[in-house]
Design a protein around this nucleic acid. Structure first.
Lengths: 200, 200
DNA sequence: GTCTATAGGTAGATAGAC
DNA sequence: GTCTATCTACCTATAGAC
């Protein structure tokens, strides 16, 4: 079963854009990677921008929207924290280059790009989780934490090791497989860390 | 007191490279920003790569090496955590674009770039801190945490909100000043969070 | 749909006047 | 040291044959 030309292009574009970023990516490199002619890229996607958006929008959804699912779910706070960490870390381990791709482009494309994206896409919505945390604090079931910062902490602990991966991997001198194993062992470590940080 | 031409170039290059990244930066834009002629960039720095390295190496040092100072200091663990968070957050609040610049380039420039950098520069050395954590665990003075992950947690909690700033600021709909105030209020919040997470 | 050839524009770098 | 003008290379995008 051979992939269609359009899929070959998308697969190649995903790989190259993710690795080099929009500005450093050359249409020629995508064509080579896909094993097809450069002209075909324009036949299927008209220009570099449109091809980029096909790749980026998909990555953005994967990176962002999964968060909402867990945040809005109807379950006790501690369970929700566990579910978020283990499910989200699993997504990141399966797609380790995703966060840096999305975040790099958001940083480099400028304010207008971010604003346009936010208006076009479903934004992540941390409010259900923040409300839930507030209630737990008021009921005295967890420590007095700032709910906004707690949410930020949860996300930071999961995502940052992937964004800063070249740095940490360069320092620790470990190969890709070892690093991803470290991330796997990180799941229970993060869950413990958060539990102890907020319990009364 | 007028800045020298070389300083004008460096200031402009810092601003543009930091905002757009190496690949998207145009020598013309740096010249415009500096209010000088494009040819002068080559007179002072010969080519784009050399100018970039003048800016990047400085940023890398600022971002990385300050960590070592605190990590290697001779003080009790809880004090050290407090010192790290408050001092490092202060650096980041004063230079909010620093982490994303360094991390983006490390991600996009590829393995050879990172490897060359690591061999040329003093690497961050977390070993003194990791050793100290191990001793505290063995003495039963803190909970049984994995020292490697604890160090990773400390850094993640401080740095990630700056790397993902466009995302969070886009979601929270706050202006630059408000966001930096949030980061200021974050210092004690992180310190509390870590203390509670590791104390027995 | 897929290829080749090329147009059109832009960026980095250099030459040379002042 | 600083400027203008220009070279050369490359990259996106299009035109047109098959």
């Amino acid at each position: 079963m051979e992939a269609s030309t359009e899929d070959k292009i998308l697969n190649a574009a995903r790989e190259v854009f993710t690795r080099k970023g929009f500005a450093a990516t050359r249409m020629q490199e995508i064509a080579d990677q896909a094993g097809i002619n450069k002209g075909l890229l324009h036949y299927y996607f008209r220009n570099k921008n449109k091809l980029f958006h096909a790749v980026f929008d998909e990555a953005f959804d994967q990176f962002i929207l999964r968060i909402n699912e867990v945040f809005a779910a109807d379950m006790p706070l501690f369970e929700k924290i566990d579910a978020f960490v283990s499910q989200y870390m699993a997504i990141l381990i399966a797609n380790p280059a995703l966060p840096s791709f999305v975040i790099n482009e958001l940083n480099q494309k400028g304010e207008a790009f971010v604003k346009e994206l936010m208006s076009r896409k479903n934004k992540p919505n941390p409010l259900p989780l923040i409300g839930q945390i507030q209630m737990e604090v008021q009921a005295g079931r967890i420590r007095e934490v700032n709910p906004f910062h707690l949410v930020l902490n949860m996300i930071s602990l999961c995502v940052f090791p992937f964004v800063a991966r070249p740095l940490f991997q360069g320092i620790a001198q470990v190969d890709d497989e070892t690093y991803l194993n470290l991330m796997e062992s990180r799941k229970p470590e993060i869950i413990d860390f958060i539990h102890n940080a907020i319990r009364v």
